[in-house]
Design a binder for these strands. Structure first.
Length: 290
DNA sequence: AAATCGGGGGG
DNA sequence: CCCCCAGATTT
């Protein structure tokens, strides 16, 4: 494994970074936190418009904390995984009440907040506050797997290995490490993509261990195939949530039956949503939680 | 370690 | 059609 000159990534990023809201000068730490919640498993292009509406409406944690969950879930719209919206709301409440309405800077303090894990905590510490930490998302894991380890795909996510691997590459300089973190992510997002990497446009092409080895195929057992979405409980949950978001009054069991005809499946889905705090029984039917 | 959790983009 | 996506949490 060669060292991999961080300047290759930093210089490429300076020239090719996409113009995204969270890269605007003066973008708030709160805005960065909100963007990171929305970006957990949802693509950039879908996040941007919702994020801008969201920050206009709730410019600080206390503003969001004061809103009812029903409105938070409506504003979340179709971003997916609506439990993230509830976690973000809870996160805002904790920041408003326990951190003086200021987004914490320490990774440990961030990790203690709901909905924030290894990636998000470090992303906020680095991008919102300029601290030095390895930021490892799926893009970074893929770039390291290829450029450094010489394999087509990273192994399963494991912070015990992934964080030190990125830390070993991270420049000491505070400005450079931030650009290296962001640049490595960006490289994985738009050049070193999972499906069809654009090695011809890659600043690491000449030093990439995977390319130099002749792009060997993935080894080991193939990953378990993702379950079908069509006909899944996830699709059913999504349909119920869409109905609840669209109605100002409780949605009757009969109305829900038009979306989920099977009584047994309907009961299972509603019980799950209720347990997750995403739906509430009310007089005459089901509603978003107030 | 594996399952669960939405919904859509793009090869 | 199928894989992938700026992951976190629970089992």
């Amino acid at each position: 494994m060669t060292a991999l000159d961080p300047a290759l990534v930093v210089d490429w990023f300076a020239a090719h970074a996409r113009d995204l809201p969270w890269r605007r000068p003066g973008f708030s730490a709160w805005g960065t936190l909100v963007s990171e919640f929305m970006l957990q498993q949802t693509q950039v292009a879908r996040v941007v418009p919702i994020l801008e509406d969201w920050l206009r409406r709730w410019p600080t944690p206390a503003d969001l904390a004061a809103a009812p969950p029903s409105e938070v879930l409506r504003a979340w719209g179709r971003l997916g995984y609506p439990r993230r919206a509830l976690a973000l709301h809870a996160c805002a409440t904790t920041i408003a009440e326990q951190h003086g309405n200021v987004v914490p800077e320490d990774v440990d303090a961030l990790l203690a907040l709901p909905g924030i894990g290894d990636y998000t905590a470090r992303a906020i510490a680095v991008f919102a506050h300029g601290h030095r930490h390895p930021v490892v998302d799926t893009n970074v894991r893929r770039v390291i797997a290829r450029a450094v380890q010489g394999v087509a795909q990273p192994g399963p996510p494991n912070a015990r290995r992934d964080l030190p691997a990125m830390a070993a590459l991270l420049p000491e300089d505070l400005v450079a490490q931030r650009a290296f973190n962001a640049g490595t992510m960006e490289l994985g997002a738009i050049v070193c993509t999972a499906r069809a990497p654009r090695c011809g446009e890659c600043p690491l092409a000449d030093v990439c261990a995977w390319r130099l080895a002749g792009h060997p195929e993935p080894d080991g057992p193939p990953p378990r195939r993702q379950a079908r979405f069509e006909g899944s409980d996830r699709q059913r949950r999504g349909r119920v949530m869409a109905e609840l978001r669209a109605s100002d009054v409780p949605v009757s069991e009969a109305e829900l039956a038009q979306v989920l005809p099977d009584p047994e499946g309907r009961a299972r889905i509603l019980a799950g949503l209720e347990r997750d705090g995403l739906a509430a029984r009310s007089e005459g039917g089901w509603s978003l939680p107030l």
